[in-house]
């Protein structure tokens, strides 16, 4: 199309370029058939199915769900938000790992430096901390929501148990992260918290010794909990999350209406 000047307008050029990209081999190899980003996408029942079936999201969602399940008031998105917060915490956590050394006193100084020396350092640290507290809350609320809907009943009994494991792992992740700033708040909150565990009969002392790497919290504990926080516990929780999501699909999707 030419405009009044007999020249090809900018709008047309852009649209032509976009068409060229969207029909290229690279583009169509990335976006599988049914993708809304693919050239020639039309909104049809068939394509709506393909969007999910040809997408990695097929691991999480079926092609169709019961109508009541999409109502916001049914799930309040709590499970999905917990998962999303986990991803957010992973991203911000990786960012923080670039600037953090789990030794004393470097740990504390590095946290201080986040506020002064690192671009967006304080913001990312805030996101990480508030996101973590929010995740504890959403996981707990998700559990309550599932209980009040009776969604733990057969065939979903085992997935409820997996969910309880995820709740415990979430608390442990939060608790191990609590020590890392290595300030007075971290040190003494963790001291109080882990002293409670030390009262466990028979194994209490051994568990406590293994967890904090000694009879009391020392800089060695910092390294130990750092590894637990950034590597071990995320590894375990991802496995349980995979089972959890898989069982949601296999146990019949989201639970029925009340």
């Amino acid at each position: 199309m030419a405009n009044g000047n007999g020249k090809v307008g900018l709008k047309e050029r852009v649209s032509q370029a976009a068409d060229h990209v969207r029909t290229s081999q690279v583009w169509s190899s990335i976006f599988r058939p049914g993708s809304p980003f693919r050239a020639g996408y039309t909104d049809s029942p068939r394509n709506r199915s393909y969007v999910i079936m040809n997408n990695v999201l097929y691991h999480l969602h079926p092609v169709k769900v019961k109508r009541h399940a999409v109502r916001l008031s049914y799930t309040l998105c709590l499970g999905g938000l917990s998962f999303f917060l986990f991803i957010l915490l992973t991203i911000t956590g990786i960012f923080l790992m670039f600037y953090y050394r789990p030794t004393s006193p470097q740990a504390y100084l590095d946290i201080q430096a986040l506020a002064t020396d690192v671009a967006f350092g304080q913001l990312v640290r805030n996101l990480h901390r508030w996101g973590a507290h929010l995740m504890v809350l959403t996981v707990f609320l998700h559990m309550a929501r599932v209980f009040y809907h009776g969604a733990y009943k057969p065939p979903r009994e085992f997935n409820w148990v997996v969910g309880i494991v995820l709740l415990v792992l979430t608390l442990l992740l939060s608790f191990t992260g609590y020590l890392l700033p290595w300030d007075q708040l971290a040190l003494w909150a963790v001291t109080v918290g882990s002293n409670m565990g030390a009262y466990a009969p028979v194994i209490g002392d051994q568990v406590s010794f293994a967890l904090i790497g000694g009879v009391q919290i020392t800089p060695d504990t910092l390294l130990r909990w750092y590894v637990l926080h950034v590597l071990f516990l995320p590894f375990i929780i991802v496995i349980f999350m995979a089972v959890h999501f898989w069982r949601v699909r296999k146990d019949g999707g989201i639970s029925g209406p009340l």
Partner: peptide, 20 residues
Amino acid sequence: DAPLLEFANFNEQPNPSKAP
């Protein structure tokens, strides 16, 4: 902002000390 108190000091326990 996320809280950041003084540097960890084993000899000075804040009162009260609270868990998370």
